[in-house]
Amino acid sequence: MIRVELVRAWPHRHESLWLDLPDGATVASALALSGWEARDVAVFGERSTRERVLVAGDRIEILRPLIADPKDARRRRAQRNAR
Results as ranks from 00 to 15, higher is better:
Pro22Leu: 07
Ala28Arg: 15
Pro11Trp: 00
Leu19Asn: 09
Phe44Glu: 09
Leu6Pro: 04
Val27Trp: 03
Ser34Asn: 10
Ala32Cys: 12
Val27Gly: 03
Leu6Glu: 02
His14Asp: 07
Gly45Glu: 14
Asp40Phe: 13
Arg8His: 07
Leu19Gln: 08
Ala28Ile: 07
Ala25Ser: 13
His14Lys: 11
Ser48Asn: 06
Gly24Cys: 00
Leu6Ile: 12
Val27Cys: 02
Arg8Trp: 02
His14Arg: 13
Ala32Asn: 14
Gly35Leu: 04
Ser48Val: 03
Trp36Thr: 11
Thr49Gln: 06
Gly45Ser: 11
Asp40Gln: 15
Thr26Asn: 08
Ala28Ser: 13
Arg8Ala: 01
Leu19Glu: 01
Gly24Lys: 04
Leu33Arg: 05
Trp10Gln: 06
Thr26Ile: 09
Glu46Tyr: 13
Glu46Trp: 13
Ser48Asp: 10
Asp23His: 08
Leu31Met: 12
His12Leu: 08
Trp10Val: 01
Pro22Gln: 14
Leu19Asp: 05
Ala32Lys: 14
Asp23Glu: 15
Val27Asp: 06
Gly35Cys: 09
Pro11Tyr: 00
Val7Gln: 00
Phe44Gln: 05
Ala25Leu: 03
Val43His: 07
Leu17Pro: 01
Ser34Asp: 01
Gly24Ile: 00
Leu21Met: 09
Arg39Asn: 14
Asp40Val: 13
Arg13Ala: 10
Leu17Trp: 02
Val43Gly: 08
Leu31Cys: 06
His12Asn: 05
Trp36Ala: 09
Glu15Ile: 08
Glu46Leu: 15
Leu17Ile: 11
Gly35Gln: 08
Ala9Ile: 01
Leu33Cys: 01
Ser34Glu: 04
Leu17Val: 10
Asp20Cys: 06
Gly24Tyr: 01
Glu37Met: 02
Ser34Ile: 14
Asp20Ala: 15
Glu15Pro: 12
Leu6Phe: 07
Ala30Gln: 02
Pro11Phe: 00
Gly24Arg: 04
Gly45Gln: 09
His14Val: 05
Val7Asn: 02
Glu15Asp: 08
Leu33His: 02
Ala32Glu: 15
Ala38Thr: 03
Leu33Trp: 04
Ala30Gly: 05
Arg39His: 10
Val27Glu: 02
Ala25His: 04
Leu33Ile: 06
His14Cys: 11
Leu33Lys: 10
Trp36Ser: 07
Leu6Val: 12
Ser16Gly: 10
Thr49Trp: 10
Arg13Tyr: 12
Asp23Ala: 06
Ser48Cys: 08
Leu6Cys: 05
Arg13Phe: 09
Trp18Phe: 12
Leu31Asn: 04
Ala42Phe: 14
Ala9Arg: 11
Arg47Gly: 11
Trp36Met: 07
Ala32Tyr: 07
Leu17Ser: 08
Ser34Arg: 13
Leu31Glu: 05
Asp40Lys: 15
Ser16Trp: 10
Leu19Ser: 02
Val7Glu: 04
Arg39Glu: 14
Pro11Ser: 00
His12Ala: 00
His12Trp: 11
Asp20Ile: 15
Arg39Val: 14
Phe44Arg: 12
Ala38Arg: 14
Leu21Pro: 10
Asp23Val: 05
Val7Trp: 04
Leu17His: 06
Leu6Gly: 05
Leu17Phe: 08
Trp36Pro: 04
Val41Glu: 08
Asp23Lys: 06
